[in-house]
């Protein structure tokens, strides 16, 4: 009997088309992506129907940490109500986020040293450079130097530990704008001063109409109320958030925005 010869087919699959598709997908993701900013703690914002987007530039984000949800702590609320600040500058190279951070730091330290003459904070240029490259920070002025001396991984670990009493910008109840400010208020004052200074520089020699159309941090703070965005967890008690509101009111920064996720009007709230 003659054997029937089966012609063996090659199992090679041509991957060129597949490669084309993946490259296209890759291009799409690369172009649409904005990288997640590193934040020391995760918060889940409540949702609202407001469709206004968080601005890309010229915004100061205040993050309020939430109670510990891992269930590992005896008292989950020790992790709650810690403040972190991040600065985002213009896309413009002279006022990039790095430069804005540097200016804010210099201003805030000047105010702090003015108020605490016996306990001044002096940072080396290397430490300042470290601060400029950091997205979000949340330590009292007294811990600033210590924190900036750490390596990046150490720092993330340090700031990510919400139970550490050294983490979080102090926000006690000072209600006097002219008196001794708490750390959070010093930062707010620095934000205002720097924004105003930049605005004055940019507005010099412009007509009133052009001045009204300037889009810098000062305009965002004063006119649009988009300069400061508060990001808090939906389960954070109102009393904690109110403390932040109170400090903003004390510093006369009454217009600000609250970060929310989007939901539709028809979505049941209950």
């Amino acid at each position: 009997m003659g054997k029937v010869k089966i012609k063996r087919k090659s199992t090679l699959i041509d991957m060129t088309a597949m490669s084309d598709v993946t490259v296209l997908l890759l291009t799409f993701f690369m172009l649409t992506s904005t990288f997640l900013q590193k934040e020391p703690t995760i918060v889940y914002t409540p949702s609202s129907v407001s469709e206004e987007k968080v601005p890309m530039n010229n915004v100061v984000t205040v993050l309020v940490s939430s109670a510990d949800k891992s269930g590992k702590l005896d008292d989950p609320t020790v992790a709650e109500g810690k403040l972190f600040i991040s600065f985002t500058g213009d896309a413009d190279s002279t006022l990039s986020s790095e430069n804005i951070r540097g200016m804010m730091l210099d201003e805030a330290i000047a105010i702090y040293n003015e108020q605490h003459k016996n306990n001044q904070v002096n940072l080396t240029p290397a430490e300042k450079a470290q601060f400029r490259s950091m997205n979000m920070f949340g330590v009292p002025f007294t811990e600033l130097k210590n924190m900036l001396d750490m390596s990046v991984t150490e720092r993330d670990k340090f700031q990510g530990n919400m139970t550490d009493p050294r983490v979080g910008i102090p926000i006690d109840g000072n209600k006097n704008r002219e008196g001794r400010l708490n750390d959070f208020q010093i930062w707010l004052k620095a934000i205002y001063n720097v924004a105003q200074r930049i605005n004055n520089e940019q507005a010099a020699g412009l007509s009133p109409e052009e001045r009204a159309n300037l889009s810098n941090l000062y305009a965002a703070l004063m006119r649009k109320g988009q300069g400061i965005a508060i990001k808090a967890d939906k389960d954070t008690p109102f009393t904690t958030v109110q403390l932040v509101f109170d400090n903003l009111q004390t510093m006369k920064l009454n217009k600000f925005s609250l970060m929310t996720a989007l939901k539709s009007e028809d979505e049941p709230t209950k």
């Binding site: 649409t32 206004e52 109320g225 600000f256 970060m259």
Partner: peptide, 17 residues
């Protein structure tokens, strides 16, 4: 690594205290 959805904001104006 990407965030596709951008956060929304709710604007609020408080009176002076």
């Amino acid at each position: 690594c990407t965030t596709m959805i951008k956060s929304q904001t709710l604007q609020i104006v408080l009176p002076t205290n």
